[in-house]
Design a protein around this nucleic acid. Structure first.
Lengths: 207, 207, 207, 207
DNA sequence: AATGAATGAGCTTTCATTCAT
DNA sequence: GATGAATGAAAGCTCATTCAT
């Protein structure tokens, strides 16, 4: 009996996930303006009533997609940093590497990410999910910069300014990838960020 | 008779412009996904057939808006640079200042800009108009960086890397403004870019 | 120019009326619960967008139908009474005759009337239109009854009670027609109401 | 084992009744046009498949509700009359009193009653259940009227006409209550019917 | 050139019913 | 007997576009 229930619940959960993935595919292909339930279900291979059954409305489904992408991104850089040990330089390198990892920086993910961003101004409910480099990430990087400054004995660098620069650079390079994925070079991107980091903390980040 | 014709043509041009402005307003308010001809005409105060009369389709009107914004942006930084004289440092400062000028960096313009960007992946016809910092700007900034390197006698700096960094920083700071217009500080933004410029060209950009 | 405009406006008004008539037909045939825009347009022979173009919503169209029927009914008994002269007995006879006139008491009209009544409890916006024998009619009949009492010298009859009785009788006989149109006899119905009137005002309403 | 079966059957019957009551509530609240299985089950607190399990279709459930209300009404006036003894005047008084008893004449019951009536023209299967004052009631009242006439020695009164008048009056007063429950006065209603009865049978129904 | 009534495709959502569990 | 996930038809409405005026 418990097993039977589990089978049903598993199927339900599988359908939920399939809808989220199909929606992301549909956004990547057609754009947020042209995503329709028909197009989503075409990709998911499920029946017409499915979206409203699982998410009550198309709006809720789109929010679920945004949330999913946001959580995936946050989890990715957090995990990368946690695996990098205690040294601030290693932690920052890990975050930078994570940001250019094809797992997050790829055409589909960027298409979805920028699509939600484009609508965030008129649909503010997306906001919490598309501010990728949010308060938590800023605090984390600012802390790392403070550690780097204290370790290097350099008193001239403002950790907040350094963090703002690094984060803006990451943002700008994502935009560069989104607009020109063909000419984008991940190694150059990493090098650019490390170069800026080195400019702020001269003793660290030597090649 | 010729005068009557001129009046007609002026009216036509006025209607064309009114539609573009109303469309930009509608995008800023409702988002690209929810812009309809009805909402545009509500803002423009014109009659229903106007869009198809002047632009033959809604798609064309949207493209005209994108083009308008793109041309305005390009003209703005070009003019600023042209007015800065011949010194490379002054030219780069002018470009940076232009990028944070409220004339281009304001809520409405960013809302429209990011809205088109969000759809650019699925509607590639927008691409030529939303790659703000396009090939021409990159070449311009790269040239300036080369001049700065040569003038400073520094041979270690790659002008392309420097230009990429500066442009990515400008992009990233626009994103920061788009996501958090309330907490954004234009002076800090300019300082951050100048700080990076100084890191690449130690002799220049002293406060 | 004025003529051309008039042609368009006349067509528009003709479509509006056609939709109202088609809706009444659809209610009579399918019931209020099963009236759909498709069924209405099938009867009207017009295109799908027509209802929302002329009435914004199906709800508004239904309200327009209710209003139309209400106005028709009121106009009918008012006109009948106005044409009956000054004598109270003649006026009341005219009202009674009007109530059983096939122009108002027929299958289609009753089907529509009772359909709206059935929904009036859950959709109170119908209320003003389905209280056929409303305050104005009650006051009118009460006034007539007062005249009749005063004329007859009978002081025992309460004009309000008499009016309430007559109106309730009219209502009840409409219901009888609605439920059993085949066995309903208009002459008997009139006779029943006149019999009651005679009971209240013994000197009047002799056959 | 037999006991278990009985429990099952009791549960089944309880569910059946719960569905009928919940449906009546839903009709009273939303109207027949807007009653959905979802809304019924929301009120009943039962699971989605229940309606089709017990009644095989929504249509059947609605018919069961109509039938229930019809049987309740008939049983109510029959029982009242049976308890009134043999005198015709007492019997008619009992029927009249029963008709204005809050047990039958209340908002919920009237909402359901008039809702079914409104659809009866387009869904004739409701007809047998919404002709409250049906053939049996008419025969009963006609018989009483005949007894009253014979007892009074009055030969001028047609018992059928008298019965028709009384029944139409009862109908009309129900309609009055349905349309204006707040201003309706049960005592006045009873007085109006008794007044008419007295007009037909002068010797009887003295206050 | 300008208007706005008309069209019908396509949208999201609700619905009654089915059926594996 | 009871459950609720699944289905797909049909609902009301919005839309871009057409075209007679």
């Amino acid at each position: 009996m418990a097993e039977a229930q589990t089978t049903r619940e598993l199927t339900k959960e599988r359908h939920r996930r399939a809808l989220i993935e199909a929606t992301a595919d549909a956004i990547a292909e057609h754009g947020l303006a042209a995503v329709s339930i028909s197009r989503i279900l075409e990709k998911a291979g499920l029946s017409r009533g499915m979206v409203n059954l699982h998410f009550s409305s198309k709006t809720n489904l789109l929010l679920a997609v945004a949330q999913q992408f946001s959580e995936d991104y946050t989890h990715h850089w957090s995990a990368a940093m946690d695996g990098a040990g205690e040294r601030p330089e290693a932690k920052l390198r890990a975050i930078i590497d994570a940001d250019f990892d094809p797992v997050v920086l790829n055409r589909r993910t960027m298409a979805v990410w920028f699509a939600f961003r484009g609508e965030a101004h008129s649909s503010p409910e997306y906001m919490p999910f598309i501010d990728s480099r949010d308060a938590r990430m800023q605090q984390t990087i600012t802390s790392i910069c403070r550690e780097l400054r204290d370790a290097g004995g350099d008193t001239g660098t403002d950790p907040q300014i350094a963090a703002l620069s690094i984060i803006a650079l990451l943002e700008g390079l994502w935009t560069d990838y989104y607009l020109h994925p063909d000419r984008f070079d991940r190694d150059t991107a990493r090098a650019v960020v490390l170069h800026t980091a080195r400019a702020f903390f001269p003793g660290s980040f030597n090649a």
